[in-house]
Design a protein around this nucleic acid. Structure first.
Lengths: 354, 354
DNA sequence: CTGAAAGCGCTAACAC
DNA sequence: GTGTTAGCGCTTTCAG
């Protein structure tokens, strides 16, 4: 590409052009663009008008270079893009993040963690100065990337908890309590054999919700029985298959009368599997999910769930990150948002034994 | 921020540093970084090693400035971020886009069209040189933004058709045919009164699918009856309310025995509304959607739909845009992807009149 | 209040 | 092969 020219051959207008036309120096133009003081009213007005008329827009990259910032942040996910975008909950998160970023003049770019690269390729982002901050959507135990970012003192906020990292900034929902209360509401309905279709135990999310399940059982005086925990995989297909197999192979008197699923995303194939085996929901098996996806209330039967303020979580995380970047005061490095059980028709009392 | 320094006070390592340490000029270092010829093997090896050891990463912004490119593209949507991210189909699109962009060293940033700004604020993106190309997710009739981009000869690809724009680059699915075949399959089952819960008539998508519905009816010798077209709004809540009201207020003998919904996203509250009125699906009313969201097969009843290769559409659009930017040959400026009806249990023959 | 000039970190002529 | 140098378009001292 020729310098100072677009593909179509039209000159791209620069600050120098404006300066020449206004008969001032670039410094003055720069001052009015940045609302800096030290420009006569007359000049300011004239230059502003010129800018307006010509539709001049300061070059993003040049500004970034001298400012040493790009006004873009990266959202780094544990899941692949396919997994990420398949989940309604991710959409809510991204929506929260993007809304506060764009309204603050920032942009974001969505990346997924490359599990195959050993070298933490994500670090190139910060070494190359191409992002001003990072939102870590999910973290592992003693997450090496989080550790590295901490050591480099690079601005980042974890969405989800950072187990093994002291003093890191994060915002999370109370997953343990959320799961606990879901199971507790099943217990209250009289259920004694409660299964859990758990999330990936490689993630805090999966671990925490399982923990909440376990605690609720113990507190209710019910044994925690590992054989009632179905570790089904990541996709709906896998969940369908595992759950179907599980219920096919269990003796009727052992059969759980309720299942708490890792999230609503999983609850859909779980219910399908039950129905396909001729089991009714909630007559034979009650089901409760997590997240309270927008669709859940419209499902058949309407799905009980743990309502989680996911988009708020994204917003809070983005706000915190922005403060971090701008060196502003942060009230609390850790934010935990609360959840609440929403009871719907997928819930019932267990039928008395036939 | 002090120059050449990070927040934490550590120097940020630059090409000049590498050059000094290697005892060569920056030009040489630049050459090895860019795999340009004209460097002795010995130097190349030594410099590479140094870069490796120091974990040097060329500054993204500086490169962008001199190259006059940012390696980022914008995805501009018609919907708000909330609407966008709520839809499984959008997730599939984004996944397709992001996967080809990132694998080509590009990034993307998701924006939504500001319907309140008259000045086409999106143009600032290109005036400020902050994106290399644009993916227009959806376009209006004679879309002013698309027109402007065309005039400026700025690289862009429309996802969806560009009515009123000759020779624009776009990739789309065959919505008219998709809708046609959905309705046609209802007709084949014996349905005569078929309703359509349509999408926004401000979008091509909504218009085209309605058109397909209309054509199928006409071709089947059935009258196109506007009162059977339910323009329900954008949210599931609105759809639920409208559809419920519609079926509540219609005489039984006038009641549609089938409904074709704009997409699967809408089909969920439609089915809920029917069930809440005591109507069975498909016994009383058959339902067919569009998109074939991943969840649809697991719904109760499993939802018939028109399968659309949405993630492929995103990929194709991204690939086309990249070619456009890189000045490569493009086989065809317009790509239309085909759809296919997937029949599931939400479909049945109309019950014989009681 | 204004302008000259020194960069930001890199690429790419152009000379040697 | 290698180095020198002139920018890319902007911000920001520092003089005046």
């Amino acid at each position: 590409m020729t310098k100072r020219t677009n593909d179509n051959g039209t000159e791209r207008i620069t600050m120098t052009d404006i300066a020449k036309m206004a008969g001032v120096s670039v410094a003055t133009v720069s001052r009015v663009i940045n609302d800096s003081p030290g420009v006569s009213d007359e000049n300011r007005k004239r230059i502003s008008k010129l800018i307006e008329e010509l539709g001049y827009q300061p070059n993003f990259t040049a500004r970034n270079l001298v400012r040493q910032s790009t006004r873009t942040i990266a959202v780094i996910n544990m899941q692949t893009l396919g997994q990420l975008h398949a989940q309604p909950a991710s959409g809510r998160m991204l929506q929260g993040i993007e809304s506060v970023l764009t309204s603050n003049g920032y942009r974001c770019t969505i990346l997924s963690r490359d599990e195959f690269a050993q070298d933490m390729s994500e670090l190139r982002l910060i070494k190359g100065g191409s992002v001003d901050g990072i939102l870590l959507n999910g973290a592992k135990l003693n997450d090496p990337l989080a550790l590295e970012l901490t050591q480099r003192n690079f601005p980042f906020v974890i969405i989800g908890r950072a187990i093994g990292l002291v003093n890191s900034h994060y915002v999370d929902i109370d997953n343990v309590f959320g799961a606990y209360s879901a199971v507790e509401s099943l217990v209250r309905l009289g259920h004694r054999r409660i299964a859990h279709v758990c999330g990936s135990q490689q993630t805090n999310l999966g671990v925490e919700r399982l923990e909440g399940y376990r605690r609720a059982l113990l507190e209710a005086g019910l044994a925690y029985n590992e054989s009632l925990v179905i570790d089904a995989g990541l996709t709906r297909k896998e969940v369908y298959t595992s759950v179907r197999r599980f219920f096919e192979n269990i003796a009727q008197e052992e059969r759980p009368t309720a299942v708490f699923t890792f999230n609503d995303f999983f609850a859909i194939p779980v219910i399908r599997a039950l129905l396909d085996l001729g089991l009714q929901v909630p007559r034979d098996v009650s089901v409760i999910g997590f997240d309270d996806d927008e669709a859940s209330q419209y499902l058949n039967p309407p799905l009980a769930s743990v309502r989680a303020p996911i988009s708020e979580m994204g917003m809070k995380a983005a706000e915190m990150l922005l403060k971090l970047i701008q060196g502003k005061q942060i009230d609390s490095r850790q934010v935990i948002l609360q959840t609440r059980v929403i009871e719907r028709d997928s819930l019932g009392s267990p039928s008395p034994p036939a």
